[in-house]
């Protein structure tokens, strides 16, 4: 949707590129946080888990910076049409990425509770990384779609959310079965259930971002499009 045309006021273009850069930086950090949290979980690496929790502050800081930038852009440039939609989308996307970062942090927080001293490794952990991969791919691709103003790519990401939901349902059943068979692990596996739920929520958020990207690029609501056709 981004026309190659530049704004007559060059500083406006600089603001917009800075805004895009901050979003993609923030998204990169969130994606990394999911990877690291899952790595820490699989390996029982509590040091890495701690690192993830610490790094979440960077995501929060970028969100604050973005908010300031966007308030300034609205006040100074009075953006219109696709510019306005993009700025508003960026504001909302920043808040969603911050939430995604929180979910990753929450996964990291559970690592020490799942890997307790003297306990055997919980087998069930092995089924989570594939789901995490799917969720973080959605985050990655939706931010690519934002950078490229690609409405079609955004629409395709929404479709993937169903796969993630199916994944969650199946993991839920698996974990419950595991708890029944291994009553000693109930407390740890309950944490794994939350991990799965967090991943499922990350997918929901990525879907929300995709809807915003679609609106920013086209000016139309994805829900309306899919409902009518």
């Amino acid at each position: 949707m981004a026309t190659g045309h530049e704004h007559t006021v060059k500083a406006f273009d600089q603001d917009i590129s800075q805004l895009r850069a901050l979003i993609s930086q923030m998204g990169g950090l969130a994606e990394q946080a999911i990877h690291d949290a899952m790595k820490a979980l699989s390996r029982g690496d509590t040091a890495l888990a701690k690192e993830v929790r610490k790094k979440d502050k960077q995501i929060d800081a970028i969100e604050a910076e973005l908010e300031k930038l966007i308030v300034r852009v609205i006040a100074l440039r009075a953006p219109m049409a696709d510019d306005l939609r993009e700025v508003i989308a960026a504001l909302k996307i920043a808040a969603v990425i911050e939430r995604i970062g929180d979910y990753a942090k929450n996964i990291a927080k559970r690592v020490p509770m799942i890997h307790t001293e003297g306990e055997d490794r919980i087998e069930a952990i092995s089924i989570l990384p594939a789901m995490a991969q799917l969720a973080s791919d959605m985050v990655h691709d939706v931010l690519d779609a934002f950078s490229a103003r690609d409405a079609e790519a955004a629409a395709r990401i929404c479709e993937r959310d169903n796969a993630l939901d199916d994944f969650y349902d199946s993991i839920f059943r698996t974990l419950v079965t595991f708890m029944v068979e291994n009553p000693r692990t109930v407390s740890q596996v309950a944490h794994l259930l939350f991990v799965a739920k967090n991943l499922e929520r990350i997918g929901d958020h990525a879907t929300n971002v995709a809807e915003m990207v679609y609106f920013a690029a086209t000016g139309r609501y994805l829900a309306d499009e899919t409902a009518t056709g």
Partner: peptide, 19 residues
Amino acid sequence: IFTAPREERTKDYITGRYG
């Protein structure tokens, strides 16, 4: 017109991209 104009020329004008 001001949120989602149909025409490219309208958009360029209202967003300040008019050359």
